[in-house]
Structures are given as structure tokens and as C-alpha cells.
């Protein structure tokens, strides 16, 4: 009996150790490095909060903060909303079900580098598909990646296309909603929109909340490599998000302390937004319940 339980603990151990060594430990240690100046060539120098004061007065950091907020504010609602829309459109089992789901999920499994290679062609103003189609109608497009708004929209589009994970979760959640509630709404004469507002949305709210929280992190993560390869954070920092700046400072300029500090600020910011969001969600739930 105890032997069996001990055996269970042994089975859990690799994951616990791996997580401790590669995730929890590094996260804590990085937080420590955030208060130092460190170039990997000489030992780290403790600098305390001066690192953060310098970052705050750093134009590039402020610009990256703004770029991050803009891109997240556009990408997260579109990713979660798009996933929800697809899930609601596709939740009934029909022909082509498997094929459609696979197609919607496919962009999420394509390696970052392949995505970047393809998007360079997509936004090519002369030889790319958008340029060719718009030119056929006499319009044409300019140098998309040289335009701050165009570059940001490209990054957002890449992020939105990889909404597969959220879509699948919402699809499963929608299929688990009880049909009788919908039948009842139907007999009460509720239209599609009323049905969505009164039945679907409240029931899916917890899942949507969790997805939104995760998307705050993932939406930036999935575009990191394509952005690095396509715009390198440009033009004029329009797509230089905090992860990109952390990489650049830490690994290109060998200011590892700065890189750690930026990462810590990003984490705190994410945590803050998640906390606020869950509080709002709870309040909204209570309001709906009463």
C-alpha cells in the first residue's frame, strides 16, 4: 500500500524536478537578475531599483510598452472572439467537420520560421497576393512593413491566424452546453442574438475568462519569432514588443540584467491584467446570478 503510493510519487517526480529546474527556478532567478547589471563576461553587479528607474526614463522601453499594449489590445479580443465565432459556427456535427477543424487548427502547428517566410511573400507589395489582387483593381498596396500601422496589423494578423488552441477549447465547451436550455430559449421565441446573450455567453464566460488570461501571454509569444524575422521590431519600434526588447537587450547587447528586468515587468503587468480581469469576471458572474 505505502509502496504503491511511494511509486506514485516517483512517477510524479520527473515532472516536478523538471519544472523546478527549468521553469520555477529560472523564473525566480531571472527575477533576481532583474536587479543587477550583468554582461556574462564579468560577474553581475547589484544595482537595485536603479535598473527600473533607468528603464522608465528609456524612450525605447516606453515605446515598447505602448507597442505591446496596442498589439495585445488588438490581438487578444480578435483571437478569443474569432475562436468563439468559429466554435459557434461549427459546433453542430456536419459533413466536413473533421476537415474544417483540422484546417482551422493547421496554422497553429506551422513552425514560426515557415510562417515568417510565407508572410514576407504575403505582404510583398509587387509580387505578393495582396499586392497582386489590389493592383488588379487599380489600387495596390505600399510597403506594408515600412508603415507602423501596417507592420502592427501584420503582427496582429499572424497572431490571430494561430487561434487554433482557443477555438478547440471553445468548441468543446460549446458542445458540452445543455441542449434543453436552447430548446427552452427557442420556445420563448428568442432570436439568435438573444440566445447568445442570455444562454451561450454566461455559460461560456469562465472558459472565455481563462482563455483571455492565457492569450495575454500566448498572443505575444506566437508572434515573437515572426516579428523578429520580418520587422526586427521596426519600423521605429512599432512592433518591438516587450519580449522582443528583452531578447534584444539581453542577448544582442549582452545586458542580461536589463533583459531580466524587462521580463519581470512584463510578468507583473500580465499578472495585474489577469487579476483585474478575474475580479471583473467574478463581479459580472454575481450580477448575472442575481
Amino acid at each position: 500500500m505505502t509502496g504503491y503510493r511511494a511509486g506514485l510519487r516517483w512517477l510524479l517526480l520527473p515532472w516536478l524536478l523538471g519544472t523546478l529546474l527549468l521553469v520555477v527556478g529560472p523564473a525566480l532567478i531571472t527575477a533576481g537578475f532583474a536587479f543587477t547589471r550583468y554582461d556574462a563576461l564579468s560577474p553581475p553587479q547589484l544595482a537595485g531599483f536603479a535598473v527600473f528607474r533607468d528603464l522608465w526614463s528609456d524612450v525605447e522601453f516606453r515605446r515598447a510598452l505602448v507597442s505591446t499594449l496596442v498589439i495585445v489590445a488588438l490581438a487578444v479580443p480578435l483571437r478569443v472572439g474569432g475562436g468563439l465565432l468559429l466554435a459557434l459556427l461549427l459546433h453542430r456535427r456536419r459533413r466536413l467537420d473533421a476537415a474544417t477543424r483540422a484546417a482551422a487548427y493547421a496554422p497553429s502547428v506551422v513552425p514560426d520560421v515557415a510562417i515568417a517566410l510565407v508572410w514576407l511573400w504575403v505582404v510583398n507589395p509587387v509580387y505578393g497576393p495582396i499586392g497582386l489582387i489590389t493592383s488588379a483593381f487599380g489600387a495596390g498596396i505600399g510597403a506594408v512593413l515600412l508603415d507602423p500601422a501596417g507592420a502592427r496589423l501584420t503582427v496582429v494578423a499572424i497572431s490571430v491566424l494561430s487561434l487554433g488552441e482557443g477555438f478547440l477549447v471553445l468548441l468543446a465547451a460549446r458542445r458540452e452546453l445543455p441542449q434543453p436550455l436552447y430548446d427552452l430559449a427557442r420556445t420563448e421565441g428568442a432570436g439568435v442574438l438573444t440566445e447568445f446573450r442570455l444562454v451561450t455567453l454566461p455559460l461560456l464566460a469562465p472558459v472565455l475568462g481563462l482563455l483571455t488570461a492565457r492569450d495575454l501571454v500566448v498572443s505575444l509569444q506566437v508572434v515573437m519569432v515572426p516579428t523578429l524575422l520580418l520587422t526586427n521590431g521596426g519600423p521605429l519600434g512599432a512592433t518591438k514588443t516587450l519580449p522582443l526588447l528583452a531578447y534584444e537587450r539581453g542577448f544582442r547587447e549582452l545586458e542580461l540584467g536589463d533583459g531580466a528586468a524587462i521580463a519581470l515587468l512584463l510578468t507583473l503587468l500580465t499578472g495585474l491584467v489577469v487579476a483585474v480581469q478575474f475580479r471583473l469576471l467574478r463581479r459580472w458572474n454575481r450580477a448575472v446570478a442575481t
Partner: peptide, 8 residues
Amino acid sequence: DARQRAAE
């Protein structure tokens, strides 16, 4: 111009 440079 910039558009052509972006293409090639």
C-alpha cells in the same frame, strides 16, 4: 521607391 524596395 520604398514600395519597390520592399518588393525587391
